Amino acid sequence: MKKWMLMVIFVLLLSACSEEVQPTAQSEEKDEPKATEQQADQEQEGTEKDEESDEDVQPADAEEDSEELAEEEAVVEAVYELNEANWTLEPVSDEYNSQVVLLTIDDAPDTYSVEMAKTLKELGAPAIFFVNGHFLDTEEEKAMLKEIHDMGFAIGNHTYSHQKLDDVPEETQRDEIIALSDLIEEVIGERPKFFRAPHGVNTDFAKQLVKEEGMLLMNWTYGYDYFKPYMDADKLTQAMVTGEGPEVDVPYSLLKPGANLLMHDREWTAAALSDIVTGLRDKGYEMLDPEKIITP
């Protein structure tokens, strides 16, 4: 009897335990859809973030494309070639303006070159600054050259020590030219594209070396600031704008389309520079961008 009663009690206890467990299982089953909804919300948020991320990337890509296009548009086409018969620059076809002059400044960056570069920059007038190595002995002088280059001006090779090339052996000529190109590259990050010999004196060896170095050898059409009668801003302005130098036996004008104008780092030239540019423009001449000149 006792055994039977114990068995009944045991069965009743098992039934009670079974009923208590079921709600827990149902509760867990009801929580699952909630977890699924949360997961869906997370996936949706992730998708939205991905879409936002894609939207964020698109303007950057567009900006890069715009910058690349601007760089392509900034490339200047070389369409003027040097006439070695008179050292003028001539357009390769009639579609380009022939009424141009090239401004060049020798003996940079001595004393007034940065000032002259700033004047030209304000006027929007491009030029070539021909450099001597003995004006690049100090860090301050190198900084002056870099400043001129950073303003957008072309830098040319005028030999290291302004040596008259036909007075020295070929090895010295090589050093005068190559050493300066190396130094210019060290300062501004690129080698010069233009070469002008001191006093306009070249040798066959120097001509070949300059060509091998990828530089265009040029002299000039006219210049007056190294003659004593024109060491005055007003007189120099008159001579450069008209092309005439009667005080030095040039009573006629040397100004012509494509003229290659020689000037120097000089106090009177710096003072006259703005009026020279303005005067030439008033005569209908455009200042030629050196980037438009065909080089080797």
Rank of each mutant, 00 (worst) to 15 (best):
Y112T: 01
E63A: 14
D265K: 05
Y224L: 04
V8I: 15
D65G: 13
L183V: 05
E73C: 04
E67D: 12
E29G: 01
C17W: 06
N97A: 07
Q44L: 12
H264Y: 04
G223Y: 01
K164S: 07
K2Y: 11
I128A: 03
K118E: 08
Y160I: 00
V8E: 13
N202G: 07
W220G: 02
E63C: 08
N157L: 02
A74F: 04
E51A: 12
P109Y: 07
I128N: 03
T172C: 01
S66K: 14
A62K: 14
K146V: 00
M1I: 04
T237A: 09
P257D: 09
T172H: 10
L123C: 03
V100R: 00
G284T: 01
D50S: 13
H264I: 04
E28G: 12
D65E: 13
M5L: 14
S274C: 06
V79C: 10
D166S: 14
D166G: 08
M5H: 13
S253V: 04
T88H: 03
K3A: 06
T159V: 06
E176W: 02
H199G: 00
E140C: 05
F195P: 00
L217H: 05
L82D: 01
H199T: 07
E291L: 11
S53C: 04
K30G: 00
E43K: 15
S53G: 15
K193P: 01
P59N: 11
E186C: 07
N260W: 02
K142A: 08
T36V: 13
S18Y: 11
A62H: 07
L288Q: 04
S53N: 15
I128W: 02
S93Q: 02
V101L: 03
P198R: 07
D289C: 05
K207Y: 04
E140W: 06
T47P: 00
R281Y: 03
K164D: 07
L183A: 12
D234Q: 15
K228N: 08
M287S: 05
R191S: 12
I293W: 01
E48T: 10
G245I: 04
Q42F: 07
L123M: 11
A108F: 00
T242H: 08
Q238V: 01
Y285W: 06
A74I: 03
P59I: 02
P91E: 04
G245D: 02
S253A: 09
P251K: 13
A271Y: 05
P23L: 09
E171W: 09
A78Q: 08
D61I: 11
E52H: 10
A272C: 04
S27C: 09
E147H: 10
A62P: 02
F195H: 11
A35T: 12
E267T: 08
I293S: 08
K118Y: 01
E52R: 15
Q39W: 08
R266F: 05
H149P: 01
C17L: 14
C17T: 09
E90W: 05
L217V: 05
D41E: 13
E122T: 14
T159P: 04
K228A: 07
V21D: 03
E28P: 00
E186H: 08
D110A: 14
P23Y: 10
K2N: 11
M7D: 10
K34I: 08
V131D: 00
T111M: 09
S53H: 07
Q39R: 15
L13H: 13
N157V: 00
V248E: 02
T172E: 13
R191C: 00
A197Y: 01
V241E: 06
